[in-house]
Amino acid sequence: MSEFAPAGDPVIPDYGTATDCVANDGLFCTGWFVQQWPSVFWPALVSHIYMVVIAVVVGFIIAFAAALLAYRKKWLAGPLNWVATILYTLPPLALFQLLVPFTGLSMWTVEIALVCFTLLIIFQAVLSGLAGVPADVKRAAAGMGLDTGQLLRQVELPLALPAIISGVRIATVLTVSIATVAAFVVDAGLGSPIIKAVSSPFNTQFIAAGALAVLLAFVLDGLLVILGRIVTPWTKARA
């Protein structure tokens, strides 16, 4: 990914064919959007999806492992939650700035920051889901001869799945939003055309990129809802 030009350099959008809509800076120039889709918006959308998926997957692995550890070792729940909370409360631009001296203006900086913002939500979702499993259910499973590992895999995790998926949904939508700020570090994602549009008087680029980010959040959330219904069919039957 290429880096942004130094501050102060002019940003000159590619207006393409100067139609009346473009020349008069219409609210939304559909023709210009279609013209710029393959070269501007589609690559930005793909890179945005890439950033979000990598961050959520890595964040889930880390947070899930930490939550399982905290569930088994109760005294670790407080310290782990405290660390995740500190990372979550850092402003995105501040975290980017803290990471740049170590990882530079690179995708590593972006992904590390995005992962940090997913940890608290997923950690708390997994931990609360496991803690919410009824004690009588666990006693009944233990009475059937299930050991600790079997109890976790066959009873606790399946019953905690709705809470876990809810946490992943929230983390995913949040990451879609924060990833737009990543354009201050790398020239990638839907934040790139948004920032370039802010530097110009042209409305269409700003509206189109923002609308794509919102649409992406809805689509990913919808896919996770469908996934949740597939992996927890008993909740639908109970409803």
Rank of each mutant, 00 (worst) to 15 (best):
K196M: 10
K74G: 10
T172L: 03
L227K: 06
A171E: 11
N81G: 15
Q97C: 02
W32K: 04
Y15R: 12
A208D: 04
G228S: 09
G228C: 11
I54D: 04
G104E: 07
Q97L: 13
W234K: 05
P6E: 09
L190P: 03
A209S: 15
A142K: 12
L93G: 08
V198R: 14
T85S: 15
V46N: 06
V168A: 08
A213I: 06
W75S: 09
L90W: 11
V22H: 00
A125E: 03
F64N: 01
G16L: 11
I86C: 04
G167Y: 09
L90G: 10
V40K: 09
V225K: 13
T232Q: 02
F28C: 02
A197S: 15
Y50I: 11
A160D: 05
T109G: 01
V181F: 09
A160H: 04
V155H: 03
L130N: 02
A163V: 11
Y88E: 14
G104T: 06
V219N: 10
K138H: 01
G189K: 02
A208W: 11
V176P: 00
T235S: 13
L215V: 15
L146C: 12
E111R: 02
T204D: 03
V198G: 06
A55G: 00
L80Y: 07
A213F: 12
V115E: 05
T232P: 04
I164M: 13
T118C: 09
